[in-house]
């Protein structure tokens, strides 16, 4: 029993210490020493790796999820004779919830894990140490551009996800199932509020972007520089970011739409 309490305390302490180190990393690489001019080309490069290369998975998933929503919505709503509302259902569930959350989960799996593995390998092969010895701060050179790239990419990817999803829903509902096009779009336009729905979804995605990339770069930077250490860090990135996204999603939804 005592052992159990001891392990619990130890785990809690080491988690807390890691959280402190993560905060320090974020502060040092972003707030304390901004260097916009040297960072810009690096940022563009990372935007490509983190953002552009994630496009395929985001577009394909967005399309399919929109199509499934259209199909499921139709089969349920048609029983009540209100299949005209499919557009509204597809759009609201996408912009409010599915686009930010699913994009963040996919992003954690594709870009987050890659960031962790890349930074971890740079640590294991002494590239970070050699940057330091050359007199270049690895936080500024390696961590900061990657963090900003994730932070910027996520909202854009989320918007793309929503747009493709709505389009996928329209293909199924209007073109295949034959809902009247006018009422599909009109219902959607009528019920989706820019500030209430679209903007809140984007705010969510900004938060998720920051959190997922933060976890990814920290796990890479803080990993044990061995093959085992890197694989564990990569796993932790995906697990922690997924849990963080789902947990934060509930909190943000409660703050935005709930009456808490």
């Amino acid at each position: 029993m005592l052992d159990w309490i001891q392990t619990l305390g130890q785990n809690a302490l080491s988690r807390l210490a890691a959280f402190g180190r993560a905060g320090q990393l974020l502060l040092q690489s972003l707030v304390a020493r901004p260097a916009p001019f040297t960072m810009f080309p690096l940022l563009v490069q990372q935007l490509y790796f983190v953002g552009v290369l994630s496009l395929v998975i985001i577009v394909v998933s967005g399309g399919f999820i929109g199509m499934v929503l259209g199909l499921q919505g139709y089969t349920i709503l048609v029983d009540y004779g209100s299949e005209q509302a499919v557009g509204q259902m597809v759009a609201l569930s996408l912009v409010r919830e599915l686009a930010p959350v699913v994009t963040a989960l996919l992003f954690a799996g594709r870009a987050g894990s890659a960031l962790t593995a890349e930074i971890g390998l740079m640590k294991a092969t002494e590239q970070l140490a050699s940057l330091e010895m050359i007199g270049v701060d690895p936080l500024r050179r390696v961590i900061a551009p990657r963090f900003w790239a994730g932070f910027i990419s996520m909202p854009i990817l989320t918007v793309i996800f929503s747009v493709v999803g709505v389009w996928g829903g329209a293909i199924v509902a209007v073109d295949w199932l034959g809902i009247y096009e006018g009422s599909f779009w009109a219902n959607m336009q009528h019920s989706v509020d820019f500030k209430e729905d679209v903007l809140n979804g984007i705010i969510k995605s900004i938060v998720f972007g920051a959190v997922v990339t933060w976890i990814a770069v920290f796990e890479g930077y803080d990993c044990v520089p061995t093959s085992e250490g890197i694989s564990q860090a990569t796993t932790r990135t995906v697990v922690f970011s997924s849990l963080a996204v789902l947990g934060l999603d509930f909190i943000l939804t409660a703050l935005m739409f709930g009456e808490l």
Binding site: T125, E126, M133, I134
Partner: peptide
């Protein structure tokens, strides 16, 4: 960092980027 500009270090693994 200024002092490090006066030092060069050859790492065991080479540590090339």
């Amino acid at each position: 960092f200024l002092a490090r500009e006066r030092m060069g270090m050859l790492f065991q693994s080479g540590a090339l980027f």
